[in-house]
């Protein structure tokens, strides 16, 4: 097998366009999915049984089925209810829904990891459940959940490849097109694999840096001197 390097130069722009679409879709899905994940996590501890049931059913359903069938369900169900969206939007909605279920579980774990006395002492001052969450519990949750949130974000990048099956013009779709035109599957797929790999590694490195900063700020000992360590890190 010989490698045809001309594919990289001839089809590079096309692949980069797909790459850009992947990034846009994942960012949009995170912007929609993270707040919704928070809503789901809070819904799971609502005092109304109905809301608790609704939130946990949503989470369990999306965590226990393949993403590809979720994508197809959205693809066919949305028009069924009269919602005709371009494939990219369907993809964003599906990815956001899928991601929110996982984000919700991560956030729930973080809330559970904050000592019970924190919520209690906040409620004892007269804060409502939501105020206690907003001002006392959730700010402490953030450094705890950051590593797991990073992992979920990376997994969204990977899952977004599945949107190619409903013709979303993202990175994997670009590779499929290139291999269809050139009949050089190895070059096409290895190139996108490397692009995904690079994107994931870059994100992982950035997030690890953020994690270190956040955990430094929230761990007592070095709290007194955050400015110095921040400069060194940056």
């Amino acid at each position: 097998m010989s490698i045809d390097l001309s594919i990289f130069t001839n089809y590079g722009p096309q692949l980069l366009l797909g790459f850009w679409m992947t990034i846009k879709i994942v960012v949009a899905a995170i912007i929609l999915g993270m707040p919704f994940g928070l809503v789901l996590a809070l819904g799971r501890r609502s005092r109304f049984v109905f809301i608790r049931l609704l939130a946990s059913s949503f989470i369990e359903i999306f965590r226990n089925t393949p993403f590809i069938i979720q994508v197809f369900m959205f693809f066919y169900v949305l028009p069924f209810y009269g919602l005709y969206l371009p494939a990219e939007y369907v993809g964003v909605v599906a990815l956001a829904a899928f991601g929110s279920a996982y984000f919700a579980e991560v956030i729930r774990g973080g809330i559970d990891a904050v000592a019970k006395g924190q919520l209690e002492s906040a409620r004892a001052t007269g804060m409502s459940d939501w105020q206690a969450m907003r001002y006392i519990v959730l700010p402490q949750t953030l450094p705890i959940i950051l590593p797991a949130m990073t992992n979920q974000t990376l997994s969204l990048v990977k899952e977004s490849a599945i949107l190619s099956t409903i013709t979303v013009g993202e990175l994997t779709m670009a590779a499929i097109t290139v291999q269809g035109e050139t009949f050089r599957p190895f070059e096409a797929f290895i190139m996108v694999a490397l692009l995904y790999w690079a994107l994931n590694e870059t994100l992982a490195i950035i997030m690890r840096r953020v994690e270190r900063k956040v955990s430094k700020r929230s761990s007592g000992g070095s709290r007194a001197v955050p400015a110095v360590s921040a400069v060194k890190d940056g």
Partner: peptide, 30 residues
Amino acid sequence: RARIGMVFQNFNVWPHLNVLENVVCPQMVV
């Protein structure tokens, strides 16, 4: 509850807020 203050065995101070903010926060929120 805003009229009743409670002090716990294991303090339950809020570690993400500094000393002043621990005292300021419930005053502003509640």
